[in-house]
Computed example of a mutant assay.
Amino acid sequence: MENSRFVLAVDGGATKTTLVIYSDNGDTLFEKTSTGSNYHAIGANKVERVITDLLLDAYQAVPFERIEIAAFAMAGIDTEYDLSIVKAIIDNCFQNVPFETQTVIVENDVHSTLIGITSGNPGALILSGTGSIAYAIDRNGNIVRTGGWGHRAADEGSGYWIGQEIIRAVVQFEDGRTNKQTALKKLLYEKLQVDHMEEMLSWLYRPEYTNAQVASISSILCQAVSLRDETAIDIANRAASELSRLASTVLRKINVFEEPFTIYLNGGILQNHPYIRDLFIQEMLEAYPNLSFELCHKQPIEYLVNRAITELN
Rank of each mutant, 00 (worst) to 15 (best):
S202F: 01
L188D: 06
H196T: 06
I220E: 05
Q181Y: 15
K185Y: 02
E208Q: 14
M197C: 11
S219C: 14
N211T: 10
K185S: 06
D195M: 06
D234M: 13
S216H: 13
L187Q: 05
H196R: 12
Q223F: 11
L187C: 03
A224D: 04
E230G: 02
V194T: 08
S218Y: 02
R206V: 03
A215H: 10
Q213E: 15
L221H: 03
A239Y: 01
V214A: 08
M197A: 08
I233P: 00
S216W: 10
Y209V: 11
V194L: 04
S216L: 12
W203G: 06
R228N: 15
A212Q: 11
Q223K: 15
I217E: 00
Y209G: 08
V225D: 03
L201V: 12
A215E: 05
L201N: 06
I233R: 13
T231P: 00
Q181C: 06
K180V: 13
H196K: 13
L192T: 10
V225C: 14
K191A: 13
T231L: 06
Y209L: 14
L192G: 09
R206C: 12
L188P: 07
S218V: 02
L184H: 00
M200C: 13
D234P: 00
V214L: 13
S218C: 04
A212D: 09
A240Y: 00
L221Q: 06
K191V: 04
D229Q: 06
V214I: 15
T182N: 04
S219T: 13
E190T: 14
A212V: 12
L187E: 10
L227K: 13
D234A: 15
D195F: 10
P207E: 12
I233G: 02
D229T: 09
P207M: 00
L188N: 07
S226E: 15
A236C: 02
V214S: 04
Y205D: 00
Q223R: 09
L221G: 07
T231Y: 00
M197N: 02
E230W: 05
A239F: 07
K186V: 11
S202L: 05
L201W: 08
A183L: 09
I217C: 03
A183F: 13
A239N: 03
N211A: 13
L204E: 02
S202K: 09
D229W: 04
T210L: 07
M200L: 12
E230V: 13
A236M: 01
S218H: 05
L192P: 12
I235S: 00
Q223I: 11
Y209Q: 13
A224Y: 03
M200E: 03
R238Q: 15
N237L: 08
V214F: 06
L188G: 04
T182W: 03
D234F: 12
V194G: 01
A236G: 00
L204V: 02
T231Q: 06
E199G: 02
A239M: 03
L221R: 09
N237M: 11
L188W: 08
S218M: 01
A183Q: 11
E199P: 03
T231W: 00
A232K: 07
K191H: 14
A236F: 03
T231F: 05
D195P: 00
C222H: 11
T182K: 04
L184M: 04
N211Y: 10
E198I: 12
K191I: 07
